[in-house]
Design a protein around this nucleic acid. Sequence first.
RNA 1: CGGGGUGUGGCGCAGUUUGGUAGCGCACCUGCUUUGGGAGCAGGGGGUCGGAGGUUCAAAUCCUCUCACCCCGACCA
Length: 573
Amino acid sequence: MKWTETYIPTLREAPADAELISHSLLLRAGYIRKLAAGIYLYLPLMQRVISKFSQIVREEMNAAGALEITMSVLAPAEVWQESGRYDSYGKEQMRIKDRHQREMVLGATHEEVVTQLVRGELKSYKQLPLNLYQIQVKFRDEIRPRFGLMRGREFIMKDAYSFDRDIESHKAAYQKMIDAYFRIFDRAGLDTRKVESDTGAMGGEGAHEFMVIVETTAGEAHLLFCEACDYAANDEKATYIEADPPQVDAEEKPLEKVDTPGAATIEEVTEFLNVDSKRLVKTLLYMADDKPIAALVRGDRDLNLVKLKNACGSVEQPEMADAETVQKETGAPVGFAGPIGLKNIPLYVDQEVVRLKNFVVGANQKDAHYINANIGRDFKAAEVVDLVTAVEGELCPKCKGKLKARKGIEVGNTFMLGTKYSESMNATFLDENGRERNFIMGSYGIGITRTPQAAIERYHDDKGIIWPKNIAPYQVEIVPLNYKQDDLKAAADQIYADLRGAGIDVLLDDRLERAGVKLNDADLIGCPLRITIGAKSLKEGKIELKARCSDEVELVDLTQTVSAVQATLERLK
RNA sequence: CGGGGUGUGGCGCAGUUUGGUAGCGCACCUGCUUUGGGAGCAGGGGGUCGGAGGUUCAAAUCCUCUCACCCCGACCA
C-alpha cells in the first residue's frame, strides 16, 4: 500500500482526553477515532491489525475443532429472560425497543442465543462434542468507559461456546481452548499468564483469565502469583494462607463495653485501645439488592466485594450503606457499628474472624466499643466465608509459597458454565441410554480490539508503537527520504514491488514530505521493519534496514533487500 | 449515581474575571526556496464560540435551562 492512497491521519499533538500511552498512540498514529464515549471507529491501519489478529484467532480456533458462525447482534429480550440474566446482568446490558415496542437487547455475550440455536436441533449424544464460535461486535454499557479500546462500550470479541455430554468430555474441550489460547497469544507476540478468576455475571463452576502483565495504570486487574508453584489468581478470586497469624488467647474473657470517644476509624480505635488491628473486627454495612447486610472482617484486612456478593447471593454487587442507613440500622454514627445486638441484619463473617478470641468490635453506640467479643457467645454468623482480598506477602493456598502481586490486562477468558444455561433454557440431548440430559457448556472469549491495545501498552517507546510482527498493520515500511528525487523514487518503487511480489505486507511512504516528518511518522505507526532509502547510501547501491525495536541499522545491497528483509523478519518477535 | 471540570475552525489552546462583534500554534490550499529526524518566507480558505431561552444599544463573555465529553469517587467504619 502507498501512503498517499490510504488514510493514515497522524497527529502531532495528542488529543487531550487520552489517558493511557496506548490510547494516545492509537489516536495519534491514526489507528482509531472516537465517535462517542466508549465508541471508536477503526481506521485502515487498525482494520488491518484487527484482521491480522482475527485471522490468527480463526486459524487456531479452527485447528482446535471449533466452527465459525455469526450470530445476531440484536436479540429478543425473551431469550435473556429465559436464562434469568435479563434481570441479573444489570445495567451493562444495552436494551432497546423496536417500532412495535418489543424489548430487544444488544448482545454483550451470546450464551443465551447459542443455546437457543442448538436447543431442539442438537438432540443426540452422537452429535457431540460441538464448539461454535464467532468474531463479532459486542455492546456493554459500561459505567465509565475509558482507556480507549480497553474499556469501550462497543468492541469486537471472539466468543466460543462448547457443548459436551459429560464432565470428562467438557474438561477436554476446556483444555483444548486453553491450549489454543496460549498459541494465539504467543503468535501475537504476547506473553500471557493464565489466572483463576471469579465467574461473575457468567455464572458456572470455574473460570480463568489470560493476562498480559504490565506495570502501568493500564493494568486494571490485580493478580496474585505464587513464587513457588503455578498458582495464579485474580484478586477477586485469590485465597491465601495467613503468613503471620495473630496470637489468640486461650480463654474467653467477659464482654466489656468501653468508652472510645471520637475513635471511629481503625487507626483511631487501635491507637486509643492500644490493640493490634488484627484483634479488631470491623463491621461493614452494605446494601445487597436494597437489603442491609453486614460483613465482618479483621481490622487489617480489606473486604472483597466480589466474595461478599457471592456469599450473600445478591444480584447486583453490594453497595456500601450510606451514613443515614448506618445510623438507622445500628443506632450509631459511622465508625461504631458492631455485630452485637444488630437486628434483622445477616452477618457474613470472614473465616479469619472466627479464629479470633476476645476481639474488639463497635458497640452500636456513639463513642463506644466492646472488647473481648467472641463469636458464638456474643453474636451468631449467618455464614462464615472467605471475604478478604488476598495481598502480596501472604502464603499460597496450594503450596504455602509466598504470594506476589502484579497488574495485568485481561485479553481472554474461559468459563466452565456447567449446566447453568442448558438447564435454565431446557437444552437437552439423549444419551446412549435414551435418557434426556443437559449439555455441559463452556464459553471462551478473546478481546479482539483490546488485545492489540494491550500489545501497544506492552510494546512502545517515546516515539511510538513497536508492533509484534504478526499483528502489525504492515511488516515493512519503506521510507524514501526524498520521493521527488528520481533515483530514490525508482529504488523505492522497485523494492516496494519486489517485497509485494515476495508476499510481504509493505507500506511505501510516497508522500512528498520532508525526511523528518516521514521518519517520525514511521516510528509512530510502528511497523516492525523500516527500509530507509537515502541519497548517500543509494550511491553505494545500498539501502538501510532497521528494526523498530532496535537502534541498529544494517546496510544492505539493493539487490539483496528481499532476502535481508525475510531474514530479519524471521528473527523478530 | 455523587463530586469536580471542560465545550471557541480538523487537533491543541487563548479570549470569559471587567460585555464592544473572534484570535494563536499545528494541520489544510497556492507560490518560491529548502530537503537524513516534525523547514522558511509570502499569500489564502475555514468557526452563527455545544444547544435553547433571557438580560442588554450590544453577549464567546452576564442569567436560566439543557446536551455532550472528561476526571475523581463509589473497597471507608
